[in-house]
Design a protein around this nucleic acid. Structure first.
Length: 108
DNA sequence: AAAGTGACGCATT
DNA sequence: TAATGCGCCACTT
């Protein structure tokens, strides 16, 4: 990853930062909020992230399953962070979107 | 400079 | 129901 992003990547990060504590959003929802045609860009922007102010663990797949390739420690680490925020889980690797989904298209 | 690739998701076979 | 294809960005080689 490079230094400066006056591009979609910074937009993605801005959007992800709007997900409140205790809630999650999905890759697709972020993409829709930004009118992106390629959802993979969201994952790309978060891949290898080290910024603690960027809650990348709050982004999951559309059905609530955790990121299959979560960078730092795999989905188990992502699950640990979410449980710390008292997010509801249906299964060890799947959150309850019905209770914890935050729609980013509503706030933008 | 060009081609390959990816924390996904939807439509098509 | 499973498998495949595409998206068209940004980054890497």
């Amino acid at each position: 990853m490079s230094s400066v992003h006056n591009n979609i990547f910074s937009e993605i990060r801005q959007t992800v930062k709007q997900i409140p504590f205790g809630y999650v959003s999905t890759y697709g929802n972020v993409a829709t909020a930004l009118n992106l045609r390629d959802v993979r860009l969201v994952g790309w922007a978060l891949h290898g992230n080290q910024d603690p102010s960027l809650p990348c663990h709050r982004v999951v797949k559309k059905d609530g399953h955790l990121a299959s390739n979560y960078s730092l420690g795999g989905w188990q680490e992502q699950a640990r962070r979410l449980q710390k925020e008292q997010v509801f889980f249906l299964k060890p690797n799947q959150v309850d979107l019905a209770k914890c989904f935050f729609d980013l298209t509503r706030v933008e």
